[in-house]
């Protein structure tokens, strides 16, 4: 009864809107939308992936809409039938969410040219992994003379008003908090100790960045001197001569893979698949592995050499040994609540 009345009202309003603006209800044919991450990822994809994709696909139009994974999921959930994004990029936590909420469709593995060349860990049929990320400590070598060695260095009194962090919306923020909890006796399911530690960090905070990309730019502007950070986030800046360095803390750097997905009901499905294909190709991955991007490849045809072998690891086997991988399935169970609590706790 109530529902049908609502339906009648809806059609009446739609009719009125169509009378005033014919054509308003048609979804326009649109260009491919790829939601990448902000900052260096956007730069790298704009410079390498997009040109390679366009060259291989008749100069097809593409738009990058950089945002955090959690925001990508929110945007697609809100409009499942007419998603505003065609290709999503996810770290492990959001990837699990996207798959379990039925937001992405399986990647056509059988037709893929490059899928079989990926390392076994990257071969995910719901969306292959196209790179790995490593989280450690980022600092400004001009103002921080002695390189930090531990996550706990952030709490040192000398860094009063000079530390930057991001909120838990990002994998960086959540991963850091989980690691912090573990160091203080907590775990993936008990983050309480980390929240306590963050309260003690407050006097040192200079900025709470909206996303990891902003964290990097805060170094560029001299706004912060030390922060947890993605290895890749600062590489482009460093190549430009901005004084910024990355180190793995002695407790171990955090590593995770990043997967790429075709969004369900995408009107540009074929182009979306083609973009993922390009992202897996040895040409794109080897170019991204070189300076200034230094992105960890997932294609076995791309050998980890040069700068990246020196800074991170010489192959995937060493990577697995050297870095910490977290249990994102467990983290996901409580993450939404943590995000909300963090945003309340961090307010001044």
């Amino acid at each position: 009864m109530d529902l049908s009345r609502r339906r009648v009202l809806q059609s009446a309003l739609t009719l009125a809107a169509v009378q005033l603006f014919p054509g308003i209800t048609h979804a326009q044919a649109r260009r491919l939308v790829f939601a990448t991450f902000t900052g260096s990822w956007e730069e790298a994809h704009k410079a390498v992936l997009v040109p390679a994709f366009r060259k291989a696909n008749n100069n097809a139009d593409i738009t990058l809409d950089p945002m955090l994974s959690v925001d990508q999921i929110a945007k697609v959930t809100a409009a499942r039938n007419n998603p505003p994004i065609d290709v999503m990029l996810h770290d492990p936590g959001p990837a699990l969410t996207a798959i379990s909420q039925d937001l992405v469709e399986p990647f056509p593995v059988a037709q893929s040219k490059y899928y079989k060349d990926l390392i076994p860990e990257a071969q995910e049929s719901m969306g292959p992994a196209i790179f790995f990320q490593v989280v450690g400590l980022t600092y400004n070598p001009e103002t921080v003379k002695k390189a930090p060695t531990s996550w706990l260095d952030l709490w040192k009194p000398e860094f009063k008003g000079r530390v930057g962090i991001t909120n838990m919306n990002s994998t960086l923020g959540t991963g850091f908090m989980v690691e912090l909890a573990k160091m203080k006796g907590g775990s993936e399911s008990n983050i309480e100790p980390a929240f306590k530690a963050i309260q003690e960090l407050k006097p040192n905070l200079a900025a709470v960045a909206a996303n990891p990309g902003q964290l990097a730019s805060l170094f560029q502007q001299g706004q912060i001197d030390i922060s947890p950070g993605n290895f890749n986030a600062i590489q482009i800046l460093k190549a430009q001569g901005v004084p910024v360095e990355w180190v793995a803390p002695k407790e171990g750097a955090i590593a995770f893979k990043t997967t790429i997905h075709v969004v369900k009901n995408s009107p540009n499905r074929d182009l979306a698949v083609a973009l993922i294909e390009a992202a897996m190709s040895p040409e794109v991955q080897s170019k991204l592995m070189q300076a200034p991007y230094l992105v960890v490849p997932t294609n076995t045809k791309v050998k980890m050499e040069g700068e990246i072998a020196k800074a991170l690891a010489k192959d995937h086997a060493e990577m697995k040994k050297k870095f910490l991988f977290q249990d994102w399935k467990k983290i996901n169970e409580q993450r939404a609540g943590w995000i909300e609590r963090f945003n309340k706790d961090i307010k001044v």
Binding site: D71, N169, A207, A209, A210, K347
Partner: peptide
């Protein structure tokens, strides 16, 4: 408010936007 206030301040416009857009 968001660019100059930074991540440690929250005012109504941003609060509305977060609830509507990020949390749906």
């Amino acid at each position: 408010q968001s660019l100059i206030g930074g991540g440690q301040m929250l005012f109504m416009p941003m609060y509305i936007y977060q609830q509507a857009s990020t949390l749906q």
